[in-house]
C-alpha cells in the first residue's frame, strides 16, 4: 500500500496506461502545461494542449477513438460538457449502434464537479445522470484514491466511451492505494461497510458522508451498510438489491439533484425487484433543484451531510 492523493492516483493511472499502450494519448486545455511529467515521458504527440473548444475536443477524441487511438480528453469542469454534448451523446454514444457495430469508441472524457472549491454553478454541476440516460456511454464517479486509479485504468482499457467524473473535493484526499497493477472493473459496486439495518447507497464524496453517518448510527445501535456505486453505468444492480434484501431499508444519497437523478433509478429498481423486502419507504437525500452556490456555507448546505443522512436512516429504522 502507498498513501497518495486522488490527484496523484489519477496521474499514476494515466502514466501506467500510456506506458502500457502506445495508442493512449491525452489532450485538453492545459494538459501539457499541467501534466509536465507525462509530457516529459511521452512527448508532445501524446500529451497535448488544446484550444478552448470543448466540442471539437470531444469530437476529436471520438474520431480518434474510432480509428485506432485511445484518447483521454480532459474537459476540466463538468458544466463545460454542455459544449460537447453533440460529440459525446450523438457521435460517441450512437455511431456504433447506428452503423450496425462498425465502429467502437474507446475514449475517456474527464471532468471535475461538486462542492468544495466555491467555483459556482457554471463550474460545479453534478450532471452525471444526463450521461447515464444516453445510450452507448459508461459513467464512472469514484470516491477514493484507490478507485480513482483502478477505475481510470479500466476506463482507458474499455472499448466504450467512458465519462470519468472527479469530485472536486476529493482531489487532495489521501488514500491507501495497493501497490502494483490495480484495475477496478467497471460496473461493480463496493460494500464499504456491512450492516443489517439500513442500506446507504451513494457515489463520489457523499460515500464518505455515508460512512461518517454509519459511524454515528452505530453509536445508536443501528448498523448501516454503505454501498459505493463507483460506476453509475453500468449500474451494479445485484449489489444494491442484495443489500436491500438484507436490510429492508434504503437511503440513496447524492449531490446531484433529485428529479430523474441516479437515486430515482435506484428507488425504481428496488421497488421493481425487491419490493417485498422493503420494510420502509425508500428515501433520497440529494442536492436541491438549484444551481450550485459559490458561498462556502451555502455550498456545504447544498450537499447531503453526515448528520442529515444519519437522521434520515435512523428515522427509517425507528419508524419501521
Amino acid at each position: 500500500m502507498t498513501s497518495m492523493t486522488v490527484n496523484d492516483a489519477i496521474s499514476a493511472a494515466l502514466a501506467e496506461e500510456m506506458r502500457r499502450d502506445p495508442t493512449v494519448l491525452m489532450f485538453g486545455e492545459g494538459t501539457a502545461t499541467k501534466r509536465r511529467d507525462l509530457l516529459d515521458e511521452f512527448g508532445p504527440a501524446r500529451v497535448r494542449n488544446t484550444p478552448l473548444a470543448e466540442g471539437i475536443l470531444a469530437g476529436t477524441a471520438a474520431g480518434a477513438a474510432a480509428t485506432g487511438l485511445r484518447p483521454v480528453v480532459d474537459l476540466l469542469f463538468a458544466p463545460f460538457l454542455c459544449y460537447a454534448m453533440d460529440e459525446i451523446v450523438n457521435s460517441a454514444g450512437k455511431l456504433r449502434a447506428i452503423s450496425g457495430g462498425q465502429f467502437s469508441f474507446p475514449m475517456v472524457v474527464m471532468a471535475m464537479t461538486g462542492a468544495g472549491w466555491g467555483v459556482g454553478a457554471q463550474h460545479n454541476h453534478n450532471l452525471e445522470a444526463w450521461f447515464v440516460h444516453a445510450p452507448g456511454l459508461k459513467v464512472v464517479m469514484p470516491s477514493n484514491a484507490a478507485d480513482f486509479k483502478g477505475l481510470l485504468k479500466a476506463a482507458i482499457r474499455d472499448d466504450n466511451p467512458v465519462l470519468f467524473f472527479t469530485d472536486i473535493a476529493l482531489g487532495y484526499a489521501e488514500g491507501e492505494v495497493p501497490d502494483g497493477e490495480l484495475v477496478v472493473p467497471l460496473g461493480k459496486a463496493a460494500v464499504r461497510r456491512e450492516g443489517a439495518d439500513v442500506t446507504l447507497v451513494s457515489y463520489a464524496k457523499t460515500v464518505n458522508h455515508c460512512l461518517d453517518a454509519a459511524g454515528r448510527l452505530a453509536e445508536q445501535g443501528i448498523e448501516a451498510e454503505v454501498v459505493d456505486l463507483r460506476t453509475l453505468k453500468p449500474l451494479d444492480e445485484d449489489t444494491i438489491l442484495a443489500s436491500v434484501r438484507k436490510t429492508g431499508r434504503l437511503v440513496v444519497v447524492h449531490e446531484a439533484s433529485r428529479l430523474c437523478g441516479v437515486g430515482a433509478e435506484i428507488a425504481a429498481l428496488v421497488s421493481e425487484k425487491a419490493f417485498r423486502s422493503l420494510r420502509a419507504p425508500v428515501l433520497r437525500l440529494t442536492g436541491p433543484d438549484a444551481p450550485a452556490p459559490a458561498s462556502y456555507p451555502l455550498e456545504q448546505a447544498f450537499v447531503p451531510q453526515a448528520g442529515a443522512i444519519a437522521e434520515a436512516a435512523a428515522g427509517l429504522v425507528r419508524g419501521a
Partner: peptide
Amino acid sequence: ILTSTIVGGELALATGVGLSRSM
C-alpha cells in the same frame, strides 16, 4: 466512416480521424 447527420458533426470527428492518420 463516422457519418454524422448532425449538421457539423462530421467536422468535429474529422480532426480525430486526422489525428489517427497523423499518429
